[in-house]
Every structure is written in C-alpha cells, then in structure tokens.
C-alpha cells in the first residue's frame, strides 16, 4: 500500500515546478502550459484523497476542475491570438501596452 503522503508530496513538487514555470518563463504559451501543470498536480492530490478517504467528492471535483480548465484554456488562447494579431509578440515582458 502506497501511503497517502507520497501522493501529496508528488502533487506538491509538481505544483511548485508549475509555479516556477509560471513566474520565470517569458513565453506566454509556456506560462499557460505551467498553469495546466499546476491544475493537474492538484487533481492528483484530489483523486488520492478521494481514494484514501473512500469518498466520491474528490473525483467529482476533478471533473469540474477539468471542465473549468477547458474553458480557461479556450478563452486564454483566444486572447493570445487576438493580442498577437495587433502586436506580434508573446513575450510577457514585451506585452506592456498598459505600462503597468
């Protein structure tokens, strides 16, 4: 039997790698992929909890996470394409139209 904590540590490590990719990369697409990585790592921990607590809630939650993440990816990629049409770059440090 694999202990529950192993799954949680794996999930935490994957999440933190995703955080690093999100904070450090310049390419907007890779940043999006990092978000996917973080969502998936959370899904792993939810399924693990669902299995070890013998409850169905975790799996249902993963189902909704997948649905909402699909919406997020579709909208986000559409925004990237719309931006790229006006201003052909996807480097986050060059996207500074608002001068923030």
């Amino acid at each position: 039997m694999v202990p529950l904590s192993w799954y949680i540590v794996l999930s935490a490590v994957m999440f933190c790698i995703g955080v690093f990719g999100f904070l450090a990369r310049r390419n907007l697409l890779i940043i999006f992929i990092s978000i996917e990585l973080m969502l998936n790592s959370v899904n792993i921990s939810l399924v693990a909890f669902s299995h070890y607590l013998q409850s169905m809630t975790g799996q249902i939650l993963v189902f909704f996470v997948i649905a909402v993440a699909a919406a997020e990816a579709a909208i986000g990629l559409a925004i990237i394409i719309a931006y790229y049409k006006n201003n052909p770059t996807i480097k986050v440090d060059e996207i500074n139209l608002l001068k923030g």
Partner: peptide, 12 residues
C-alpha cells in the same frame, strides 16, 4: 527566462 527568474525559483 525573465530577469526575475531567481525570485521565481526561490518562491517555488
């Protein structure tokens, strides 16, 4: 990487 990548690595 962006210029602030060491900060990102530290945070993660």
């Amino acid at each position: 990487y962006q210029d602030q990548w060491p900060v990102g690595a530290g945070i993660s």
